[in-house]
């Protein structure tokens, strides 16, 4: 069980991690990074699958189905567009520095 203070610890540490890992992102990556983090919260799909798995009434199943479909759309669409954007980033020099302040 994750409860009380343990939950608070996980939340706090994850929040600091989130801020720290993108603290020095150059401007050129803002859009792909927003899109990439949008993909990562597609993990909501896992929660939706679990909720649908344990649904017992028809209304619960229908709303659960909506949750799975929306979560799957978030994950699949988010991955495809992020990957397409990042595929195009090339330097004229191999391993060159970014145009940004990075």
């Amino acid at each position: 069980m994750i409860d009380g203070f343990l939950a608070l610890y996980i939340f706090t540490l994850a929040a600091f991690t989130g801020k720290e890992i993108i603290a020095r992102v150059p401007v050129i990556l803002h859009t792909p990074l927003m899109s990439g983090s949008n993909f990562v919260h597609g993990i909501v799909l896992v929660g939706a699958m679990l909720v649908l798995a344990h649904a017992q009434t028809t209304p619960e199943r229908i709303i659960g189905l909506i949750a799975v479909a929306l979560g799957a759309g978030n994950a699949a669409g988010g991955y495809v567009v992020t990957e397409r954007m990042l595929e195009m980033f090339k330097s004229s020099k191999p391993a060159g520095k970014a145009g940004g302040k990075g």
Binding site: I2, G18, I43, V44, V46, L50
Partner: peptide, 27 residues
């Protein structure tokens, strides 16, 4: 996503959701 993760007791949702919440706020 993180809050629903707490309800479902699912660490992946809590951590991924919170990391995106924080990184997204900074962005």
């Amino acid at each position: 996503v993180a809050f629903e993760g707490f309800v479902l007791q699912n660490e992946a949702l809590i951590i991924a959701g919170t990391v995106v919440g924080a990184a997204g706020t900074l962005l």
